[in-house]
Design a protein around this nucleic acid. Structure first.
Lengths: 231, 231, 231, 231
DNA sequence: TATGAATGAGTATTCATTCAT
DNA sequence: GATGAATGAATACTCATTCAT
C-alpha cells in the first residue's frame, strides 16, 4: 500500500568541480593598499587608475581591496583623507609649535618644515590630485578647502598681520600676501609630481625655497627709510 | 597660535585589520544550516542566495558551512533531499497508514495530512524551488520526479482506480484525475511561498481545501441515478 | 627678443593604435532581444541568466543590449511586462469577446483559448518566472498581481457567480471555486516549463483540460433543480 | 463583460528601433569640437571625459569627431596643441613686442597681458590638464615643456638678467627668480579651473596680480645703488 | 559629409571557496 | 572543530571606435 513512496538512493556523483584555483599570498594591511593607491592615483588620476594595478602594487588580490574599501570611489576618498589628516596633524604638532621669534622666522620654519614633512614626501601628490579631480569629487574638494585651504590661508594671513602690526613687515594686504607666500611652495609640489619627472634637475627645491624667502625678506621688510631718517 | 589647523573629526579613518583572528562562536549543527539555507533558497532562488547570508542566518561562519557541505551545490542538494526525504517518510508513516474506509475518506485524510505535514510548513517551499531550478539541477529534478512525482501520482491514480472499481467514483481516467486531485494543493504551496507574501489573505487554506474536497465529492460521485433505480 | 617662444613642429608619431577589432553583425531589434531574454530567464532564472548568453541567442553583441535596456533588471522587467501585457490584450480581444451561451460554455472557451494563446506558447513561462522571482522583484510581482491575478480571479468569480445565480451551477463559494478553476491550468503551465522537460509525455494537455472540464461539469452541475422537477 | 482584464497603461513598452537612420544636423567645424573638448577635458580630466559628451556639447554626432580627429588621444593632443600654439603666438605678437621701458615695466605688461590673453580665458585650463595628465601623455608633456616651460622660463630669466645687469634689480639668481615670478600666475590659473568653482570670491585676480607686482617691486628693487648715490 | 546603431575589449564588483590560525 | 581574511574566476556594465546609410 505504501510503497509508492519508497525513497531510492540518491545516485549523485557530482560531475564537475574544479580544484583549488588560487593560493593565499599574504596578510593584507589597509595602509599598504592606501599607499599603493595614492601612488597610482597621483600618477594616473582617478579614472586612469585600475584597481587591479593598485592591488598588484600592494601585493594583494583585487578582492582584498573590497574587504577594506567599499569601492573605487571610497578608496579614493579614504586615501585622500588619510593623506591629508595625518600629515596635517603631524605638521601642526612638530612644526607650528616650534615657533619662536619674529614673523619672518616663523615663515622660515614653516617653509622648511613644509618641505620636510610634505613637499619632499608622497603627500605632496595630494594637491595635484585635488586639483585634477576637483570637479569629479565635490565632497573631497569641499573637505580639502575646509580643512587645508581655509585654515592654511588663515594661518598665513595671521602671520602677515602680526608682522605688519609689529612693524616688522611693510603695510601689505594680508589676504593677497598670504596667498603669495604659499604659491611657490604649491607650484613646487605640483611640479615635482608632474612635469618634474621629465626635467628632474629643473628646480632645486632648497635653492628655490631659499630664494623665495630672500625675496620675501626684501619684499616685506618694514621701510628702513624711516629708520634712516630718524638716525 | 596653532589652532588654525584644527582638523575636524574624520568620520572615516583607514580601516584597521581586526586583531583577534577568530573566536569560537557556537557548536554548529548541520540541521540549523540546512534550515537557514532552505529558507533563503526558497526566498531568493539558488543563484540569488549568498552563502554568507546562509551562514549568518544559521549563526555560524562561512567556513563552517564547508565542514558539513562540500559546496553550494551540495548544500542545495542536501537541503532539498533532506527537505523531501524526511517529511515524505513521516508523511507516509503518519498519514498514509491511517487509511480506513472509503476512497474519498482517504483523499480527505491525505489532503488534511498534507496540509498539516507539508503545506503549512517550510517544506512547502521545496516545490517552488524545484520548479524554479529544474533546468539548472537536472539531477535534483530527476530525484524529485522519481521520488515524489511518480510515486505520488501512482498513489493518487491508485486511489482513483480503487474508487472507480468499487463504484464509489464515476468512471474517470485515473491518469488525468490523479493530477487534478493534487493541482490545487500544489498551487496553494506555490502561492504561499511567492505571491502570497504580497496578498496574505487572498487564500484561506482550510476553506480552499474544503472547497476542493466538496467539488471532488460531486465531481467523482458514482451516479446515484442507478442506485435509485435499483432500490 | 621674441624667439623664446618659437614653436617647433610636433614630432608626433602615434606609437600604437590597434586595428579594427570587430565587424558589424546585424541590425538588432529589441523584440528579438526580449524573446531571447524571456527564454533564458524562464530556463535559468534571473540570477542564473548571463547577459552574454542573451546577447548571443539574440544574435547581437553585449553592448547592444544596453542600447535598448538600461541593465539586467530593466531587461527583466521589460520582458515580463511585455510578455504579459500584449498577450493579455490579445487574449481579451480574441477569446473573451467570443462569449456566447452558458457559463460552462464560457469556461470551455476560456480554457481552450488560454491553451491556444498562453499555455502552449512561450508566454506560459511567465508564471514560473513570477513565482520564482517574486521575492526579488516586488515591483514586478505587484504588477502581476494587480494586472493578472486580481482581474483574472475577478473574472472567474464572476462566471461562477453568474452560473450560480442562473441555477446552472450548484451553490458554491465563488471565491474558492474561482481559484479551483484555474489551478490545473496554472499547474500545466508550470509543469511544461520545468519538470515537463524531463517527462515530456507525462501530461497530455488536451486530455488534461478536457478531464478538468468534465470534472467541473459534474462538480458544478445544479442538480437540485432537476431533483425537484422529478419529485 | 470583458472589463475584468483591463490592463492599465504601461509606462514602459519595449523600446523601438528609431526609423530615420540619420539626418544631417549641421555643418561641423573642428574648432567647435576642440572648444567643447577642452572644456570637458579641463573639467573631468582625460579619462573622465566621454567623447559622447564632447560631441553633444559641440552639437555634432559622435561619428563626426572621427572625421576631424583620429581618436580620443589625437583629439586631446590637438586640443592641447591648439590651445597652446595659437594663444602663444598671439601672446608673443601682441604683448611681448609692445615692450618699452624698464624690466619691471615689462613684467607688468607681461602679467597683465597674460591675464588678458590666457589667465582669464579657457586657455588657463591647459596647465591643469598638463599637470594632471603628465604621466599619461609623455609626448604632450614633452611638447609643453619644450614649447612653453623652457622658452617661458628663458624669457623670464632674461628679463631678470637684464634688470640685474642694468642695476634696476637687486643681485638675484635669474633661475629661481624667474620661476618665482610666474608661480602666482600659475597658481591663479589652476585655482580658477579647480577649487575656484567652490569658492568663487576667494581670489580677486586683479588685486592678486597687483599685489604680486608690488611685492616684486620691493623684492627686486636695486636699492644699494641709490644708497651709494645718497652717501 | 554627417549620422548613430552596433561592437567588444576593458574594468569595477561580487561571491564561492580555501586555509592559516 | 570553528573562524573569517584572502583569493580570483565570473559577470554586469562602459565607452572608444567603426561603418552602413
Amino acid at each position: 500500500m505504501t510503497d509508492w513512496l519508497v525513497i531510492r538512493d540518491m545516485n549523485a556523483p557530482l560531475p564537475t568541480r574544479p580544484q583549488p584555483r588560487w593560493t593565499r599570498r599574504k596578510d593584507a594591511r589597509p595602509e599598504e593598499i592606501a599607499a599603493a593607491a595614492l601612488d597610482l592615483f597621483v600618477e594616473h588620476g582617478y579614472a586612469g587608475t585600475r584597481l587591479e594595478d593598485v592591488a598588484a602594487r600592494a601585493g594583494v588580490s583585487k578582492g582584498t581591496l573590497y574587504l577594506y574599501f567599499a569601492g573605487k570611489e571610497e578608496l579614493f576618498k579614504a586615501v585622500v583623507r588619510e593623506g591629508l589628516v595625518s600629515p596635517l596633524t603631524e605638521f601642526r604638532s612638530t612644526v607650528l609649535e616650534q615657533y619662536k621669534g619674529s614673523a619672518f622666522d616663523l615663515l622660515r620654519i614653516l617653509f622648511y618644515g613644509w618641505w620636510e614633512r610634505i613637499g619632499s614626501t608622497r603627500i605632496s601628490g595630494i594637491p595635484k590630485l585635488i586639483i585634477a579631480e576637483a570637479h569629479n569629487f565635490p565632497e573631497i574638494t569641499r573637505f580639502y578647502i575646509d580643512e587645508v585651504v581655509v585654515p592654511g590661508q588663515a594661518m598665513l594671513e595671521s602671520i602677515v598681520a602680526r608682522g605688519v602690526a609689529s612693524g616688522e613687515f611693510r603695510r601689505v594686504s594680508p589676504r593677497e600676501t598670504g596667498t603669495l607666500l604659499i604659491a611657490p611652495l604649491l607650484l613646487l609640489a605640483l611640479w615635482r609630481n608632474s612635469l618634474g619627472h621629465y626635467e628632474p634637475g629643473a628646480i632645486d627645491a632648497r635653492r628655490f625655497i631659499d630664494a623665495h624667502l630672500e625675496m620675501l625678506r626684501n619684499a616685506l621688510a618694514g621701510t628702513p627709510a624711516r629708520v634712516h631718517k630718524v638716525s
